[in-house]
Design a protein around this nucleic acid. Structure first.
Length: 956
RNA sequence: GCGGCGUUAGCUCAGUGGUAGAGCGGCUGCUUUACACGCAGUUGGUCGGGAGUUCGAAUCUCUCACGCCGCACCA
């Protein structure tokens, strides 16, 4: 076996090992291998944006998924971790458009046109779309890359279309003129979830208007948006408001535009809060959601005074028309002042909706959009409420439930080009009913080939807003047989290419809008597995059969509504069951100061840079150690450094083992086990249990901490040091046995670490020859498939002759060493020095040698009758009193001070426990167990105090 | 405004009724042949404030304060 390099070279190792895993197809899932004995484990990646680059959030999220996937493999499961990317409509279109503009290739997207721009974006995708995928590989992600999906792949597109048609036919999708959140920068509608409220320093403008019927009465109105006054169509007051109720039905003159001061009615509406402002509300139906509702209740006209891009239009009048909305606001206030209407303006703090992505204030805007009534809401709500699907941490279940209880229809259309185009064609014709009937029949049946039932099923038609459940029988349902010529608007929804051709031929035009990106991502868990929507085909799909529903989903809580909730609904709606059994919500990565990581703050480190400087393993371990369940992660590069240091420690510990020579992994002879051997085997047992349960509970940082503690503080600091007593001795049999224990522990440790540190563990697993005796598919080829460690069971412990109290034997020894080292340090001794131990009972020679080595004592004398010189530093240990004889170097005063401190401490502790035990209130009420504990404690302190006082006396 | 989470050593966090802990940092010493990305030692906390329950509270209850995150939102 070649010797391990003196220093570990992660860059070389990580690249080589990852390539080997790929070449050996280690990550590829095969549904045919799934059986009762080999259950499936699956997880779908939250698809990153194709234009994205790896950030710390991805590192956290994907490291967790990789840990889950790798452990599942080691547990003998058939694992599918399905990767892919998201086309991310708005974000991607923005990126490409911006780049083209920057390069001076276009001024506006219209320069390219729809087809041209889409072609450019595909070019971009082909060139840059896999950047993030390659970065995930650097991190060590064990995804089945052969199944990589993209939400805009042809197959995926078919899923989106078929789902749309299905929902259309179910009557859940409709087109409607509604108030929507409009982004004047991106020029598209947004869903409620894409709007974030931000506090604003605004100005409240108060202006007065005269009641036409009562010239002496003036009303003052407060508004933050004077620029939309030209769009006012009424004034509203609360009918219960005594100040104004009598004015209802009368009129005021609208101040703007100056050339068109229209008369506005005063209406009574309960919505008006008469405690707010002046209690008089101006109603601007085209630019405010609540106002629009008032307008509907009172049949008020709607005047839209703004272009989609936020510039006021001609209806705003000659002064404001053509002005940008914020400039127009200032101008409107000036105009009010000029005509003497402005009463006052004062600073005012309010909350304003912003487009999450473009970061500009959104406009409430009346427009025609496609909406979806959410499907399978009840099932989705119940499955989490009843705990059939678990959220970790579970408090997110409440958030989820709350959102589902109050959801509004989802605005799914976007005025973009990059996305799944809405599969709806419309045509308006003048004709008789019979002619419309005939046209519809031709649309459905008039194709060259015979129309199958399935195809008829793939089309939905509505005429003049009335939707028909079954397109095939639709024409016959309508009994209107008059020959009157009317206008008919025919809307056809289909994803069938034969119909599409037919529609185009017949002069139908397709809706220009595309679907919200999330309308494709909500199908991710099954659309990525080759789902078609055809029940028969899907039931024969081995991937779906084996891996759906998936086991775990790992994502951020920020997309619980955008993505998680909707995926659950989609799962129920099309697969008839939940899409995943567990959802793990990661924390949000923040910097050391607790600020969210952002590009503008520049506080987000580049993971690739961290990998280059510290290794992927180090990054993974560092971030997992600092990521407690349910809390945000305060990222500090120190953690990555700690990860790197840990990997180095692991490497060196392995090198130490290798330098001892001997054949690897021989049988352990129970008769030759020392107390140290038994101790480390027991500690290993504890570590295995702790790590296993922590991972079962998704407590990754606890698992990492347990591993760190075990390997560094227990195995390296104590066991390896203690084992040097044997390894540097002359007993070859004992030496071989110690090496066998070391190999046993190392082999288990590497496996425990593998999910966290995939690269270095693989390198050492093979480099140290741990793979040698394993079957090929169980660790022989790769540690990836080595079995997950189990603690020694009762039989095995019995076989090794290990009893629980064996831990104490070694612990007593180590405590003795710590106390001895303390003496050395107190007296500033940093060379080998003589120690004397006055033991309470006889000690085996081997134990003495271990203590000697750990203490770096030269020599360690065991002297039951030792009588120290006056002032000799000493310490009470579980094994007896240990002395540090310092001939001629004794500082009696220093030693007295030191022992005096200990006496004081013992006295204080004794006092505490004694007074407790003297309190009848205490002794009469506490359980026996607690009482015994306290009594024992009292005895211990008494003994210790007595001995310490003796020592003090001995000092004179 | 409603809801959630948090407040423990300088920093990041464990600890959920019975002797306050870890890692990092700080300080001191150490070229001990696996490792200075290391070893050894050591410093450091009236557990956010107050009240209550209890023999006993970091832990349970109430209350206040502060911080973060959702949701709602009125011109």
């Amino acid at each position: 076996m070649p010797e391990l390099d003196k220093t570990y070279s992660p860059a070389e190792v990580e690249a080589r090992i990852y390539q080997r895993w790929l070449d050996d197809k280690c990550f590829e899932a095969d549904p045919a291998r799934v059986s009762d004995k080999r259950p499936a484990y699956s997880i779908v990646i939250p698809p990153p944006n194709v234009t994205g680059v790896l950030h710390m959030g991805h590192v956290l999220n994907n490291t967790i998924q990789d840990i889950l996937a790798r452990r599942a493999r080691m547990m003998g499961k058939e694992v599918l971790w399905l990767p892919g990317t998201d086309h991310a409509g708005l974000a991607t279109q923005n990126v490409v458009e911006k780049t083209l503009k920057k390069e001076g290739r276009i001024k506006h997207r219209d320069d390219l046109g729809r087809e041209g721009l889409i072609a450019k974006i595909w070019e971009w995708k082909d060139k840059h779309g896999d950047i993030i995928i390659e970065q995930l590989k650097r991190l060590g992600a064990s995804c089945d890359w052969s199944r990589q999906r993209f939400t805009f792949d042809d197959d995926y597109n078919r899923c989106v279309m078929s789902v749309f048609v299905d929902l259309y036919k179910k009557g859940l999708i409709y087109r409607g003129k509604r108030m929507v959140n409009w982004c004047p920068s991106s020029l598209t509608a947004l869903s409620d979830e894409e709007v974030v409220m931000k506090p604003q320093n605004a100005v409240m403008y108060h202006f007065k208007v005269q009641v036409v019927e009562e010239p002496d009465t003036w009303l003052t109105i407060a508004t933050t948006r004077p620029e939309v006054i030209p769009g006012d169509t009424a004034i509203a007051v609360n009918p219960k408001d005594e100040r104004y109720a009598h004015l209802i039905g009368k009129h005021v003159r609208r101040p703007l535009p100056v050339e068109n001061q229209a008369l506005l009615p005063i209406v009574g509406d309960e919505h008006v809060d008469f405690t707010f402002g002046t209690g008089v509300l101006k109603v601007t139906p085209a630019h405010d959601k609540a106002d629009f509702e008032i307008a509907q209740r009172h049949s008020l006209p709607v005047i839209d005074v703004m272009h989609p891009n936020g510039v006021l239009n001609e209806l705003a009048g000659q002064d404001l028309g053509g002005m940008e909305r914020f400039a127009a606001r200032k101008r409107a206030a000036e105009l009010l002042a000029e005509i003497g209407s402005l009463v006052k303006e004062e600073p005012y703090q309010n909350n304003l909706g912003y487009s999450e992505r473009a970061d500009v204030p959104i406009e409430s805007r009346l427009s025609e959009q496609w909406f979806l009534k959410y499907p399978s809401v009840k099932e989705s709500q119940d499955v989490v409420a009843k705990g059939e699907m678990k959220f970790h941490p579970d408090r997110w279940a409440k958030v989820y439930d709350h959102w589902l209880s109050g959801i509004q229809d989802w605005c799914i259309s976007r005025q973009l080009w990059w996305g799944h185009r809405i599969p709806v064609w419309t045509k308006t014709i003048m004709g008789t009913h019979a002619e419309v009937n005939q046209l519809c029949i031709e649309l459905v049946f008039d194709t060259e080939k015979q129309t199958s039932e399935q195809e008829i099923d793939s089309i939905g038609i509505s005429i003049n807003g009335t939707r028909f459940d079954d397109a095939a029988v639709m024409p016959y349902l309508d009994k209107d047989e008059s020959n009157e010529i009317k206008e008919f608007t025919i809307q056809v929804c289909t994803a069938n290419s034969r119909y599409e051709a037919n529609l185009n031929k017949n002069g139908f035009t397709q809706d220009p809008d595309v679907l919200d990106t999330w309308f494709s991502s909500w199908l991710w868990p099954f659309a990525t597995m080759g789902w078609t929507g055809d029940k028969e085909k899907d039931s024969l799909n081995p991937t779906l059969k084996a891996f759906y529903p998936t086991t775990d989903l790992v994502t951020g809580p920020d997309i619980i509504f955008f993505w998680v909730a909707r995926m659950i609904m989609a799962g129920f709606e099309w697969m008839g069951e939940l899409p995943f059994k567990n959802v793990y919500f990661t924390g949000i990565i923040r910097d050391k100061q607790g600020r969210k990581m952002s590009k503008s703050l520049g506080n987000s480190p580049d993971p690739l840079d961290l990998i280059a400087r510290y290794s992927a393993d180090a990054l993974r371990f560092g971030i997992m150690r600092g990521a407690p369940l349910g809390q945000d992660v305060l990222f500090d590069e120190k953690n990555v450094e700690l990860g790197r240091n840990f990997c180095t420690k692991l490497w060196n510990a392995a090198r130490f083992r290798q330098m001892q020579g001997g054949s690897s992994e021989t049988e352990i002879n129970p008769a030759l086990l020392s107390s140290d051997d038994k101790w480390i085997l027991l500690r290993l047992n504890t570590a295995i249990s702790e790590v296993t349960t922590a991972l079962e509970d998704y407590r990754f940082s606890d698992a990492a901490a347990a591993l760190y503690r075990f390997f560094w503080s227990e195995y390296c600091d104590w066991y390896i040091e203690a084992s040097k007593a044997v390894l540097q001795g002359g007993d070859e049999k004992r030496k071989a046995n110690t090496l066998a224990v070391i190999d046993f522990v190392l082999g288990h440790t590497l496996r425990l670490f593998h999910p966290f540190l995939p690269f270095i563990t693989e390198e050492l697993w093979n480099g140290m020859g741990f793979n040698a005796d394993m079957p090929g598919d169980q660790g022989g080829r790769s540690i990836m498939t080595a079995p997950w460690p189990k603690p020694l069971d009762a039989d095995e412990l019995a076989h090794f002759g290990i009893l629980p109290e064996d831990e104490k034997t070694a612990n007593d020894k180590y405590e003795t060493v710590v106390l001895g080292r303390g003496l050395k340090s107190t007296f500033n001794i940093n060379k080998k020095v003589r120690f004397v131990l006055k033991p309470v009972q006889e000690l085996p020679a081997h134990e003495i040698e271990v203590i000697r080595i750990l203490l770096n004592a030269e020599p360690l004398d065991i002297a039951p009758d030792f009588s120290p010189t006056r002032g000799t530093p000493s310490a009470l240990t579980p094994l007896g009193t240990i002395y540090l004889p310092l001939d001629g170097l004794i500082d009696v005063e220093a030693e007295r001070a030191r022992v005096g401190k200990e006496v004081a401490k013992a006295e204080a502790e004794l006092e505490k426990v004694t007074s407790k035990l003297a309190d009848e209130n205490f002794t009469s009420k506490v359980p026996q167990k607690v009482l015994d504990e306290h009594q024992q404690r009292k005895t211990d302190w008494e003994e210790k105090l007595a001995k310490l006082r003796e020592m003090l006396t001995a000092l004179g």
